[in-house]
């Protein structure tokens, strides 16, 4: 049998790559393209015909002030969450690689929130904020204290807090791998040359871990921008819709208000914003990467 003919090769490729590629096309490529088409219709999700409306949905999306407020809110939430996630994750990684006793136990413990889905995590924290915190704070203050989830700024704070708690352990693992990749001999050389430990950290370890930072920041940005599960369970957009994030707004527009075309157009804009921010960050981050 000749293994170099075109038909043999094609048969091989179809046999091995066929199933995976077909599934990939069915749920990713086709819906993506079909989604582009949907943005030019005013489909309500029920009727069999999808009236063509041109760019009306995009115009409507740009005029939908609630959407832009949600997007701005998501940006603010993401900035705070990304900064605190990475600061905490880096600190945790530093502590669990410093050679203290039981560091594997701590590593495993800090990772626990990542095992559990956002829906369950959100309801657990809802209980903590609404019941436990209120009981404790009321006992200390000597009067009834309101739950932070019932105030505008408080709900945002809770959302950021829970996201930091949720993702810090995951990013910690990436920073741990980064710490391990910087060889001890480099740090020792720096110390012999007269660096203090903190100088060695700032001038040797951190620059060599740049790729870990780029990766963690990229992952946290892309996750925070499309936050949905925790948003749904913890605040549900309350109070008065002041904690509705972009992803929840998209969901509501499409599935609650049955404006599929508009919802899809808004989802695409969210995707573009998220992709531009993420890619810019990676490009800037990669520029200054150094090799040991």
């Amino acid at each position: 049998m000749n293994r170099n003919t075109f038909s043999y090769k094609l048969k091989q490729v179809l046999m091995f790559a066929g199933p995976g590629t077909i599934l990939f096309f069915c749920v990713v490529v086709v819906p993506f393209v079909y989604g582009l088409y949907l943005t030019f219709t005013s489909w309500d999700g029920v009727s069999p015909n999808k009236p063509f409306v041109g760019f009306e949905n995009y115009v409507a999306a740009f005029q939908d002030s609630a959407y832009w407020i949600a997007l701005g809110r998501t940006a603010i939430y993401s900035i705070f969450a990304v900064v605190f996630i990475n600061v905490l994750a880096f600190a945790l990684a530093y502590l669990v690689t410093s050679g203290v006793k039981g560091q594997n136990f701590f590593r495993a413990g800090f990772f626990v929130p990542n095992l559990i889905g956002g829906i369950v995590l959100g309801y657990i924290w809802k209980f903590v904020f609404n019941r436990a915190y209120v009981a404790l704070a009321s006992a200390i203050a000597g009067g009834q204290v309101a739950s932070p989830l019932s105030t505008t700024g408080g709900a945002m704070f809770c959302l950021i807090f829970v996201s930091v708690w949720q993702y810090a352990g995951y990013m910690m693992l990436i920073y741990v791998a980064g710490f391990m990749s910087v060889s001890d001999s480099l740090k020792e050389a720096a110390m012999i040359d007269g660096c203090t430990p903190s100088q060695a950290m700032r001038n040797v370890t951190i620059p060599l871990m740049r790729s870990s930072f780029v990766q963690c920041i990229f992952l946290s940005i892309t996750r925070c921008f499309v936050v949905y599960d925790v948003n749904l369970s913890l605040t549900k957009g309350e109070p008065f819709g002041t904690s509705v994030m972009a992803a929840m707004h998209v969901y509501n527009t499409a599935f609650t208000y049955k404006k599929y075309g508009l919802g899809q157009a808004e989802a695409l804009i969210l995707f573009l914003v998220c992709a531009i921010v993420g890619v810019t960050q990676v490009v800037i981050g990669k520029k200054g990467e150094v090799e040991a």
Binding site: P31, F32, Y34, V226, A247, A254
Partner: peptide, 27 residues
């Protein structure tokens, strides 16, 4: 053909689920 499929797959990893959910439900 192969490298094209692979490139498409890698590129698709940045697409958030929110972009696909509406068409997915309608199809």
């Amino acid at each position: 053909f192969c490298s094209g499929i692979f490139a498409l797959m890698v590129a698709s990893m940045v697409i958030p689920f929110q972009v696909l959910m509406v068409p997915l439900v309608s199809v």
